[in-house]
């Protein structure tokens, strides 16, 4: 039996509609795939992993070191893509993230998921072949920690999300160290602690002056769940906890006079910044447009970068 004309034309019309929709979909450019890997986060991963590798004892061939850092960064980028895939709903709400490739419609969510999974596998396998399987396992754990433990479990559940999730950003120098030594040591643990305890005051200072974003997205930031007074207390407390670890690192085999001088000055500045944030009321902050909070946030960026830069230079100069 010959089908009625409408039976034939409907699928064709449907396909034509698909083609038209396809032609009018914003086309993802190469830069959109790069943006999916969170290049700014990757730059922190590259730098800290490189320092971890550089200060570790034992020679590493420069090309192998380059490739190891590259694949650690790729693993970090892959976890960023997985994060963007899962967080696409809240990214569409927050001003800061609305222009990301998925909420802006340039990349399909499933495509981002595919990119994240494929790059995760490639980065872990290649790091195993380039350096060693301990470092590769560590990278796999870091990707899992960021994409699943932080993004899926913690971020929308607890205001301590960035405290525990901050571990994911703190692992790269340990992985770099593991690439050179095949293991863990007190130096690599202290580099981890430096980033781990730096993360909460850094993000909570940001949350103090980006308050509407997190509130609108329903992310349980400390500033939203426990109030801004509590966040100010936490920022100061963490600057106090952070300082001993930063100084202790200077007393190990990777430390030296230069690093120690830098650590003492920067930690004094960071604690002072935390103290000033604690002393301010919300009205004072609103009156001057969160000037102190913004200054401490910028200081936190300099704090971490200069600590690792000092480790790098100290490693080149030789330690104690």
């Amino acid at each position: 039996m010959t089908p009625a004309r409408s039976d034939i034309s409907e699928p064709i019309a449907g396909k034509m509609a698909d083609i038209n929709a396809y032609e009018h979909t914003p086309e993802a450019q190469f830069g959109d795939y790069v943006a999916l890997l969170k290049p700014r986060v990757m730059s922190l991963v590259v730098f800290t992993a490189f320092v971890g590798l550089w200060v570790a004892p034992g020679p590493v061939h420069p090309f192998i070191g380059f490739c190891a850092v590259l694949f650690i960064a790729l693993g970090g980028g892959a976890s960023g893509a997985l994060n963007m895939w899962y967080d696409r709903d809240i990214d569409a709400i927050m001003n800061r993230t609305q222009s990301r490739p998925i909420p802006s419609g340039r990349i399909e969510p499933t495509e981002a998921l595919g990119v994240g999974i494929v790059l995760s596998v490639i980065s872990v396998m290649m790091l195993g072949l380039v350096a060693n399987w301990f470092a590769a396992g560590f990278l796999a754990f870091t990707i899992f920690f960021y994409a699943v433990v932080y993004t899926v479990w913690l971020k929308r559940w607890t205001p301590q999300n960035i405290v525990i999730g901050g571990a994911a950003g703190a692992f790269p120098p340990m992985i770099g160290w593991a690439c050179a030594t095949g293991g863990i040591s007190i130096e690599s643990l202290l580099m981890f602690a430096l980033i781990f305890f730096w993360t909460p005051p850094h993000f909570w200072a940001l949350a103090l002056f980006m308050k509407e974003d997190y509130h609108n997205a329903g992310v349980p930031m400390l500033t939203v769940t426990h109030g801004r007074r509590s966040a100010r207390r936490h920022i100061f407390a963490y600057t106090l906890v952070l300082a001993p670890f930063a100084i202790w690192l200077g007393l190990t085999s990777v430390g030296g006079p230069l690093y120690m001088a830098v650590a003492v000055v920067l930690n004094a500045m960071f604690i002072h910044g935390g103290w000033k944030i604690l002393q301010r009321s919300e009205d004072q902050a609103i009156a001057d447009g969160y000037a102190v909070e913004k200054r401490v946030f910028k200081l936190s960026l300099v704090y971490l970068f200069v600590h690792f830069l000092a480790l790098l230079v100290q490693g080149w100069m030789g330690g104690w």
């Binding site: 450019q29 830069g31 795939y33």
Partner: peptide, 10 residues
């Protein structure tokens, strides 16, 4: 034409 950049990049 629209996909040139990503094809070259890849």
């Amino acid at each position: 034409g629209r996909r040139r950049s990503r094809n070259i990049g890849l």
